[in-house]
Each structure stands twice: as structure tokens, then as C-alpha cells.
Design a binder for these strands. Structure first.
Lengths: 249, 249
DNA sequence: CCTTGCGTACTTGTATGGTAGTGTTCACGG
DNA sequence: CCGTGAACACTACCATACAAGTACGCAAGG
């Protein structure tokens, strides 16, 4: 570990570096859901004090990746159905809106760049290098957002997609997974190239909807990674509260 | 000030309370854009230590409401064209997507509750109580999101809308402002009541696009609140593009 | 008069104590 | 053997102290 060594060389502040390392550790499931995280322990492992560790954990809590219980402990958040649904909603809403603008504004160079990324993704099919594929995947989606001038869409989406990234990491490499993804990406690019915002929106929506296909198997294989949900009770209590408020007013 | 007095009575942690107070102070422009915020000064004024103040400021930086420059100072963020556009993009994307789900799922009670809020808004026209109107406005938009089961859309949207809220607060009470807003809200509710997601999406988009109509005047009246940006006529270009979008759809 | 250089008074970032509240465990009584 | 309770170890939260760095003012020199 030992973060402080390459202080200014790698990234900015100590807090930022701790945040990045922790976030990566959680998203790769190196820190499994439910794991207890102690400020003292992490500070010692990283060779820094508790303050930047604490501030990093506060940021991760905003991302819903850790849960901080006062006077008790900090834990890697378990995967929740509602968290996944929320994340997917946010990601779909923002990126689909952004790709609409991209389809309207995209230049020929932009489209060529997109096709280049997809082509490189197709190449990873031979080496079966999923890590590299995912890097290109992020690059592709980020490009879709920035082309339309909506870089903010990608930054917010990425921050909200912690749970989705974990599931993606846990997903087994299905047979023609990469080929399928490349096909869907191509469909999106084609719509963008045709300057058809509605079609681009629809194609990207289809693509993003395919993220959680293997969720059932994952939940079956790692039941301890998931929160047993009081799904009913939660939904009911929420609607009850809303109803209460509505009635009261 | 003196936050620590009613520690557990009011809200949760000290950090949370400081965050809320600071956020409110910034959004109401009580803390004007460009104001220097000293951690020491704030800590003394609130009667707490620097730590929770600092953590609150870090959260506000994520919201783009303050800018922290290491070894220099913390400042209330000036209003920026890009920040406004980003916030509006996020808000529009999320809330429009949410209202689509609301239109699909809304029950009769939900619609009645929405109409009740709009009716109360119409009443504020007489008293010209803009503060109360804005409270009802937030409640209305929050309800639109929660009805479709997208409470997360409102929370993210609200968190990202700091700049928009400041502009809203600075907006002069135009003559028939409230009547106009009520009219637009009614149009949205009608579409939701008709269970027409596409129409609801479009009506809400029109409504949200009307937020920045008086921006030019505000920028002229408070030039020091705005970041001097590269292109002078950005307000014009913004309204032009909004018009463009509206026509295009 | 203008420029230059240093000292001081600030700033944020990080490190370290001290406090209240939690879960756990182990001894003791039934 | 089982239930109960009190001491203990641990946590996050907040307060405080130290370190690194920037802006500003004032004085000295050109």
C-alpha cells in the first residue's frame, strides 16, 4: 500500500488518492460487500493519518459504496436491488439524453473515433482480456457523452454506478458477451452517425438495459454479497410516508 | 449561529447541520458568490471545531457550490454558464425520465395530490409569498419523481441544482410569474393524468427550460456574481439554443 | 518613483488526542 | 447447563495541534 510515498507524483491530495484506491478496491470486489473497514486500520495500511481516510470514506458514502454507522463501524455496502435500480436509472437517463445531443452534434471525426474504440473492443475478443474491454467500454460511453458537450453526464453517471460496476465485475464471461456488446455499441454508433437522436436514445437504452442480465446467477453464487431486502416493507413504508405527506398538505 | 446547542434535536451530526446551514446560506445568496469562507472563521461562528466545517465544505465542493484552493482559501463559487447548463441538463434528464414512469404508474390519489399542490401554488399568487411558492415547487417536483418510484432522481437533481436555485432566488418576481408556472405545472399534471409518458416528458421539459428566462437581466444587475467567461453573449447563445431545442422537438 | 526581496499573517492539508456510544465476551448467579 | 450483567475493547465523531504553502505589506535599493 503505502500511499504517501509518491505523494504529488501520482495524484493530487492524500484524500483523493485514498478515495481512488478504496473505490477501486470496492468496485473490483477485492473488498467484498459487508467487509468491515476501520479508519484506524486503513490509515495504518496506507501509511497516512485517519483524517484523509475519513474524508475519503465520507465521499464513498455519498456514492453509496460504504455505509457508516456512528459509533459502530464502516462497512462496504452490500449490493441492493434498489441501489442497482437507482444507478441504472440515473445512468440511463443521463447517458441517453447526452447521446441525443451527440447524435445532433457529432462530426465525422467524432464518429470515426467512436468506431475506432468499438473496433479495438472487438479485438479484445480474441485475447479475452475483459479488463481491457471494460476500460474501452468506459472510454466509449465517456466519448458518447462528451461529443454532445455533456461531459457532466458521464461524471455523474460514473459516480452513481458503483454498484453496477461491481455487478459487472462479478459477471461471468458469458460465451459471446463481447460480441454482443460490440454489436450493441455498433448500433448506437450507427444511429449517431445517422444524426438520429431518437434512434440513438433507443439503441443506447437497449444496450444499458442489458447490463443486469446475469444478475440472478450472481446473486445465487454470492448470496452474502447481497442485502436481504425488506423490499415490500421498504416500498410500503415509503409510499405510506408519501401518502401521509400528501394527505397532510 | 451556535449550532452545537441543539445538537441531536435538530438534525443528525454536526457536519450535517453545518452543511445544511451553509448550503442554505449560499443558495439564498446570503453568502454571495465570490465570498471568501475561512474554515476557522466559520468554525468560530458556528461554535464548533474546524473538522465538521471542513467536511461540510468538502461536500459543498462536490455540489460545485464552493471552490477550495489549497493553501489559499475557500470561496463561494461564482455562477457559471457551464455550471448552470450542466445542472439544467442533469435536472431535465432525470426528472423528465422520472415523470415518464410517473405517468405510467400514477394512481388517482397521486394525481389528486399533485393537483392539490398546484392549487396551493395558485393561492400564493395573492399573497405574493415567493418563498412559500418555492417550497411548494420543490414538493411538486419531488412528488413527480417519487410517484414513478424514482425518488433518487429528485435527490440527485436537487443536489446538482445549487446554481439553479441561486438564479431562481435572484430572479425578480416577474408580473405573472406564478400564473405562468401554475399553468405549466397544470400541463404536466394533465399529461400524467392522461397516462401519456411522452407528453408528460415534453411538458416537463418545456417547464424546466423556462427557469433561466430572466438570466440576462440578473447577470446585468449582479455582474460580480458571475464568472467572467470567454464569450460575452453566452446568455444569448443559451436562450437561442433552448429555443432551437424546443423547435426541434 | 518604481522595483525587488523578505517577513508576517493568513490559508488549507494532515496528524494526533479525547469523548460518547456500541457490540462482545466472560464471569457469576440461578 | 443456561441466563444475566458488567467490564472491556472497539468504533466513529469531534477538538486540537502541527506542517506546508500563498498573498500581502513594508522596507531597502536602483
Amino acid at each position: 500500500m503505502e500511499i504517501k510515498r509518491s505523494a504529488r507524483a501520482t495524484g493530487g491530495s492524500t484524500r483523493r488518492q485514498v478515495y481512488e484506491v478504496l473505490r477501486a478496491s470496492i468496485e473490483t470486489v477485492e473488498f467484498p460487500p459487508g467487509l468491515r473497514l476501520s479508519e484506524n486500520d486503513l490509515a495504518e495500511r496506507f501509511g497516512v493519518s485517519r483524517t484523509p481516510v475519513r474524508e475519503a470514506l465520507l465521499g464513498l458514502r455519498d456514492d453509496r459504496l460504504v455505509e457508516i454507522v456512528p459509533q459502530l463501524g464502516t462497512f462496504v455496502a452490500r449490493i441492493t436491488h434498489s441501489a442497482l435500480e437507482d444507478a441504472q436509472f440515473i445512468r440511463t437517463s443521463l447517458e441517453c439524453a447526452a447521446v441525443g445531443d451527440a447524435a445532433a452534434d457529432a462530426s465525422d471525426d467524432d464518429i470515426a473515433a467512436l468506431r475506432a474504440i468499438v473496433a479495438r473492443q472487438a479485438q479484445t475478443r480474441d485475447s479475452a482480456d475483459l479488463a481491457h474491454f471494460y476500460v474501452l467500454d468506459d472510454e466509449f460511453h465517456a466519448s458518447l457523452c462528451t461529443i454532445g458537450g455533456r461531459a457532466v453526464a458521464w461524471s455523474i453517471s460514473q459516480r452513481a454506478s458503483g454498484h453496477l460496476n461491481r455487478v459487472r465485475r462479478l459477471s461471468l464471461p458469458v460465451h459471446d458477451y463481447i460480441a454482443e456488446m460490440v454489436s450493441q455499441h455498433t448500433a448506437v454508433v450507427d444511429a449517431v452517425a445517422a444524426h438520429d437522436p431518437v434512434a440513438a436514445h433507443a439503441r443506447l437504452r437497449d444496450h444499458l438495459g442489458a447490463v443486469l442480465v446475469g444478475l440472478g446467477e450472481i446473486a445465487q453464487e454470492h448470496p452474502d454479497y447481497f442485502e436481504e431486502e425488506a423490499d415490500r416493507a421498504w416500498a410500503l413504508s415509503l409510499s405510506a410516508r408519501l401518502e401521509h405527506r400528501a394527505v397532510r398538505r
